[in-house]
């Protein structure tokens, strides 16, 4: 869970997730792989994630903590289970800041075409 942090990057308009944390979290292949796992199936327990990876339980916990600090992963309790969800918003913010705004429509159309071509 992200707590209030006044050191966020200027221009980040109090997003409370310093962009440095987002980029640092994304800079590691294992953490990107964890995000891929959650993208495939959202809401997994630590045990689910460990079972699908060639990584120790401790390693997965450590990487999840970094992802949570960057707000890329958020957790919800369901009974006794703690479920992990991919929060797409920080990446959306990065996208809006550097890619989106006026060009979004075109970029998305192009990525849509790319997906169609790759699926065909």
């Amino acid at each position: 869970m992200v707590t209030y942090n006044a050191t966020h990057e200027r221009g980040c308009s109090a997003c409370l997730t310093p962009l440095n944390d987002v980029f640092k979290a994304l800079a590691d292949a294992s953490r990107r792989h964890l995000l891929d796992c959650l993208y495939e199936r959202d809401g997994q327990t630590l045990g689910d994630l460990v079972a699908g990876l060639a990584m120790s339980r401790f390693g997965v916990m450590k990487h999840l903590r970094v992802l949570e600090e960057a707000n890329l992963v958020v957790t919800r309790r369901k009974g006794r289970e703690k479920l992990h969800y991919l929060n797409p918003m920080p990446i959306q913010m990065v996208y809006d800041r550097w890619v989106g705004k006026y060009r979004r429509g075109w970029t998305r159309r192009l990525s849509h075409i790319k997906n169609m071509l790759e699926e065909s």
Binding site: A14, G43, V74, Y85, P88, M89
Partner: peptide
């Protein structure tokens, strides 16, 4: 068959 997605965003307001 449940598919749950969670979105968290911080807004200065």
């Amino acid at each position: 068959d449940n598919v749950t997605h969670v979105y968290e965003v911080y807004i200065r307001t």
